[in-house]
């Protein structure tokens, strides 16, 4: 093995960037956001979390800068297929980590529904707990617990907005796939059209999701504080909504890049990564629709 140094110019060699100026900006942004949010949560008087917003602004600035650098290198043909594979693996394993994050909340939902709520209701080992502490509590899902935390609430009908939202997201997966096929065929205008359709479907989904939250808070008395039902419902759908928002922003960026002539029929990893991410949030929604809304 020779020790000749890596030249960063040649196309057939693995591209190793020389300096990374954005990570430290990202760390500063992340820290500002975290300290700002923590201070805000701890403050006893009403305040605006200025530091948190500043942190998010720095993070967004960092992402623009970092991605711009990567896009420039990519369009400048500095990446060989091996670099492409590294990016692909990075995205796949990132999505896997997201799967595990949602699995944590789905697991918590499974545990409370099948174990802890029945135990509180006196099933199995919970007999004495029920008789001595929570006498009269039935332990039937949906529940805000034996303490009636947050007061009485009603459920969202899965066959109205949630069903519409399911259809919207499933349709958006189809439009995105059509766009992908068009990209492979080199039909740029068609790609952009179908991508815009995808983003619109995502936006309508988010709009209905907000409508649903307003309905829940104002008319159904279902809030984040409605015991374990409210906790699991809003945390699961809320994190999903955040991911849809992020996915929609990513799709928008891809659309703008397509308008600027980026991507080739044979090489468009940025597009594919976002598509994988979008399909992932779709699958999570299917899980939500079944386990949170219907069952």
């Amino acid at each position: 093995m020779s020790n000749t140094e890596v030249s960063n110019k040649s196309h057939d060699q693995y591209y190793v960037p020389h300096l990374a100026k954005w990570p430290i900006v990202g760390s500063i942004g992340m820290t500002l956001a975290a300290v700002g949010a923590a201070t805000f949560m701890n403050s006893e008087t009403a305040s605006t979390p200025v530091m948190m917003y500043l942190g998010f602004a720095v993070l967004i600035f960092m992402m623009f800068g970092w991605f711009a650098e990567v896009i420039k290198e990519s369009e400048g043909n500095l990446y060989n297929p091996q670099v492409d594979t590294s990016f692909r693996m990075g995205m796949v394993w990132f999505i896997f980590s997201e799967v595990m994050f949602f699995a944590c909340f789905f697991g918590a939902l499974w545990y409370v529904r099948n174990l802890s709520v029945p135990w509180l209701g006196g099933e199995g080992v919970g007999l004495m707990t029920n008789t001595e502490l929570w006498s009269g509590y039935e332990g039937v899902w949906p529940t805000n617990g034996p303490g009636d935390v947050g007061g009485k609430f009603e459920l969202i009908d899965p066959y109205h907005l949630p069903l519409v939202n399911t259809i919207l997201l499933m349709a958006s997966s189809i439009t995105l796939t059509i766009a992908h096929h068009a990209l492979v065929d080199g039909a740029r205008k068609k790609v952009i059209g179908w991508l815009i359709a995808t983003v619109l479907l995502g936006a309508i989904f988010l709009f209905y999701q907000v409508e649903e939250y307003i309905e829940a808070y104002q008319h159904l008395d279902l809030t984040l504080e409605s015991g374990i039902y409210g906790s699991t419902f809003f945390m699961l759908t809320g994190f999903h909504g955040m991911h849809v928002t992020l996915g929609a922003i990513m799709l928008t960026v891809i659309t703008i890049r397509l308008m600027r002539g980026h991507f080739k029929p044979e090489s468009h990893f940025g597009f594919e990564a976002v598509a994988w991410y979008w399909h992932f949030v779709d699958v999570v929604w299917l899980g939500l629709f079944i386990f949170v809304y219907i069952i």
Partner: peptide, 25 residues
Amino acid sequence: AGAVTMLLTDHYFGTTFFNAAGGGD
């Protein structure tokens, strides 16, 4: 990350993941 997030929301935002009165554990 999910577990500590639940701690955070239980403490600051009124969820009851780990509070038996609200049906958690």
